[in-house]
């Protein structure tokens, strides 16, 4: 009796696991908002995720079926002795080579996306490269907030050197916000990530973007957001007791330069120059007259 129970037990839990996994998108236990990534690269990451998920599921079901089968057979073995076998050379070869092939395929198949995400040289070193002006902002992670600095509206970067200088020192006309990063929609975007104190990690789940901020380094992050809207920004590297407090937001907007102009008007506000409604529109600071 207990033999049947335990055989069923070891068969039932993988089935339960798979059922839970299958229903999880319906239960909203999947990717944030149950939606595709907001960046094209993120969509490719999702595809790779699902590819691995398929392979893994097949492997899981396979091993679990075999486990259930051998358990069942072994448990009702009526012979006097077990099967006296030290193994099979052929089987060993098969189950070495087949997984090796699959694994190698997985490894090689991933390379491309990684290359686009991090390795590819975005010809920033070239003078007057158009990509130089994909620079949108510098994000400084500190305990426990995101401080953001945009170059002055209309700034044109002509060389990597200029970008480096901009990163090294505040410049006239720079615009500052906190916790809320705006990026242009449908446009290749470069942000530089810095750390103000300890290590942090810039994580936007809906965009499938994650990059650690290392003290003492400027790290470039490239992405293109192709869905307008707000995306949660979180910290994914332990940065102290308030690690969980680093709630930020990334917003992709069509009219990015318009946003910068508004931000500029707000930041240059001297108590007299602008009307209240005009400035409140950015949502950055509501109160104006006070």
């Amino acid at each position: 009796m207990s033999r049947i129970f335990w055989c069923l037990f070891f068969t039932a839990w993988p089935i339960l696991g798979i059922v839970v996994s299958v229903i999880s998108p319906q239960m909203n236990w999947g990717f944030p908002d149950n939606r595709e990534s907001a960046t094209p690269l993120g969509e490719r990451i999702d595809d790779l995720f699902y590819l691995i998920l398929c392979i893994v599921t097949i492997a899981f079901i396979g091993t679990m079926v075999v486990l259930a089968y051998v358990l069942w057979k072994a448990s009702k073995n009526e012979d006097e002795k077990g099967w006296f076998s030290h193994g099979s050379h052929n089987l060993e070869v098969i189950w070495t080579i087949v997984p090796a092939g699959i694994l190698l395929f997985i490894a090689l198949y991933q390379m491309d996306v990684w290359a686009i995400y991090r390795v590819r040289d975005y010809d920033l070193k070239q003078q007057n490269s158009p990509r130089l002006n994909n620079l949108v902002a510098e994000v400084i992670a500190r305990q426990f907030e995101w401080r953001i600095r945009y170059p002055a509206p209309g700034t044109v970067f002509k060389s990597k050197k200029q970008i480096d200088d901009w990163l090294a020192k505040p410049q006239a006309g720079d615009l500052y916000t906190v916790n809320h990063l705006h990026v242009p929609l449908n446009k290749e975007t470069l942000i530089y990530l810095k750390s103000g104190d300890v290590q942090h990690s810039f994580f936007v789940p809906e965009m499938r973007v994650k990059q650690d901020a290392i003290p003492g380094q400027n790290i470039d992050i490239w992405f293109t957001v192709n869905r307008a809207g707000d995306f949660d920004l979180t910290c994914a590297e332990l940065c102290g007791w308030g690690h969980y407090k680093m709630r930020g937001r990334v917003t992709a907007i069509e009219d990015f330069s318009g946003f910068l102009q508004k931000l500029k008007a707000e930041q240059d506000f001297d108590g007299i120059s602008k009307s209240a409604g005009e400035i409140a529109a950015t949502g950055q600071t509501q109160e104006v007259t006070r």
Binding site: G42, R44, I45, L48, F49, I52, L53, I55, V56, A59, F60, L103, I106, A107, Q110, V113, W114, Y117, S201, F203, P205, R208, V209, K210, A236, E237
Partner: peptide
């Protein structure tokens, strides 16, 4: 098997931490 997800760099970008 779940290790495979994080072994793959692109997927790990999302899965990491």
């Amino acid at each position: 098997l779940s290790g495979l997800f994080m072994a793959a760099v692109p997927v790990d970008i999302y899965i990491h931490d």
